[in-house]
Computed example of a mutant assay.
Amino acid sequence: MNIHDLEIVKRIDRTKDPIKKRIYAAKELWRIYAIAGEITIDWDLAEEALAVIISENTNKYQKMGARILLDGYFGPKEVNNMIEEVAVVTERNDPLVVRWRKKIKKRDDVCQGCGSTEHLEAHHISHWSDDPVNQINPNNGILLCNKCHAKAHPELSEEFFNT
């Protein structure tokens, strides 16, 4: 067992959620088989995994498992490209949401409301809770400063935006 493998075992052991432990272990087994060249793409399974990721009716564990399968087949970058306009994410710190924020900031560069370059935040045009299908679609985002962002969300307190 090498240092990398020991770190993986430690990470799995530190995980408190028993389902996530199994998912992380499966991910490492998948990685080992992929390195050994023992994986061939099952297109029906890949299609099913993609359906799980874009569904509003699957839980985060199902999405994690499907993502592992697709990442193993196609690589994480290609999977991100495949699903960015249709995936349904459940957590705001999901890597796809982080990627969405970076794309919006890179594309817009300044606040689209007032032109400010200070305290910039990515804003969902069609709100996060109202439109789960477009949560990570770059066409559903604009860059706003925290003051313009607060104006776009009058239902939330200004403290939420640190204005």
Rank of each mutant, 00 (worst) to 15 (best):
I8Y: 01
T117G: 13
E7V: 09
R11I: 06
V88T: 02
E28V: 03
D17G: 08
V79Q: 09
P132V: 00
L143Q: 03
K16V: 13
E56H: 06
R99I: 06
K147Q: 02
V9L: 12
M82G: 01
A36H: 09
V86Y: 05
L120Q: 00
E121A: 03
V52M: 07
A49V: 02
E158Q: 13
N139S: 12
I39D: 02
K147P: 00
D13H: 07
R11D: 10
W128A: 06
E155K: 12
I3Y: 04
D94V: 09
H123M: 01
P154I: 03
A46V: 11
V133R: 13
H127Q: 14
Y33F: 14
H127T: 09
E38L: 15
R101K: 15
L69P: 11
N93A: 08
E38T: 04
F161V: 01
Q62I: 08
N80A: 14
A25G: 11
G75S: 07
H149L: 01
I136R: 10
T163P: 11
G113R: 01
Q112T: 11
A26N: 02
S129C: 03
R22I: 00
N134F: 09
E155G: 12
H4S: 13
L143R: 02
E56F: 03
N2M: 05
E7Y: 10
W30T: 02
P95W: 08
K106T: 14
T40Y: 05
V133L: 12
L29T: 11
R101I: 07
D13C: 06
N57V: 01
K20D: 06
N57G: 02
A26H: 00
L6N: 08
L70D: 02
V79H: 05
N80F: 10
D44M: 11
V88M: 03
K63R: 15
I142Y: 08
I83F: 05
L50F: 12
D94I: 09
Y24P: 01
K102P: 02
E47I: 00
R14P: 01
I19K: 12
N139H: 04
K16Y: 06
I39E: 03
N57A: 11
K20P: 00
T163D: 04
R92W: 01
I12A: 06
I41F: 04
K105Q: 13
E56L: 10
K105R: 15
N137R: 11
D94R: 09
G65N: 05
L70G: 05
P95C: 09
N80Y: 06
D44C: 10
V9W: 02
R107D: 10
V97L: 06
C148V: 11
I54D: 04
M64R: 12
I136F: 00
P132G: 07
G141T: 06
G72E: 02
W128N: 07
N93T: 14
P154D: 10
M64K: 10
F161Y: 14
N80S: 13
D109P: 02
V98P: 00
S116E: 04
G37N: 07
C114V: 13
M64A: 15
A25I: 09
A66Q: 07
D17M: 05
E84H: 11
R67S: 14
R22K: 15
H127P: 04
E118V: 11
D94E: 08
K103V: 10
K106R: 14
R99E: 14
L29M: 12
I8D: 00
G113E: 09
V79M: 06
A122I: 05
I125R: 08
I19Q: 13
K102E: 12
H124N: 09
V52D: 00
D108F: 00
E28T: 01
H123Y: 04
R99M: 12
